[in-house]
Amino acid sequence: MECRELKELLSAYADGQASSEEQVLLLAHLEGCPACRRELKLFQTMKTALRRVCSPAVPADLRAALLAQAARRRSKPTPWLKRAPVGVGFSLAFAAAVLAIGVEQFESRQADSISVDAMLAAHNEYALTMPLCPQELVLSDLSMRLR
C-alpha cells in the first residue's frame, strides 16, 4: 500500500474512526515508513493541541470583565513587546494566526458535527414502544438510551 493511499486513513486513525481491518493495514505500513509515522504524529499532536484550546464556554459576566480588563491594558504600552525584536513579534503573530485558524476550523467542525449516538438513542426510544419489545432489556443498558 502506498503512502498517498493511506493519507485519509491516517486522519481517520487519529480520530479513532478507523476500523480494525484498516488499523491492521495501517500499523503494518507504519512499521516500515518513517514519513507516515511523522505524519501520524503530527495529526495526533494537532488533535491534542486543538482539544486543549477548545475550553468550555466562559460565563457572560466573566467574559465582560475580562474584555474590560483587556481594553484597559491595550491603552497602555506593553514593555516586553516593545523591547522584543521584530522577528519575535512576527513569529508570535504568525503562530497566533495559525492557532486562530486551527481553532476556528476545529470549532466549525464541532458545530457541524452530528452524533450518531443521539440517533441510536432516538432509535431505541422508539423501539421501546414496539409490541413485544422486552423493555427490561433496553432499560438494563443505560447506554442504549442515554447517549
Binding site: 479513532g16 467542525r109 458535527s113 450518531v116 422508539y126 414496539m130 409490541p131
Partner: peptide, 24 residues
C-alpha cells in the same frame, strides 16, 4: 410490527460523528 428501521436525514454541510464504534 416487531423490528424498527430508522432513517435520519441531516442538513447539508454536517459531519457524522461515529465516535469510537467499530466501522468500515
Amino acid at each position: 410490527g416487531i423490528n424498527v428501521l430508522s432513517l435520519f436525514q441531516c442538513p447539508a454541510r454536517t459531519r457524522l460523528n461515529f465516535g469510537a464504534k467499530a466501522s468500515r
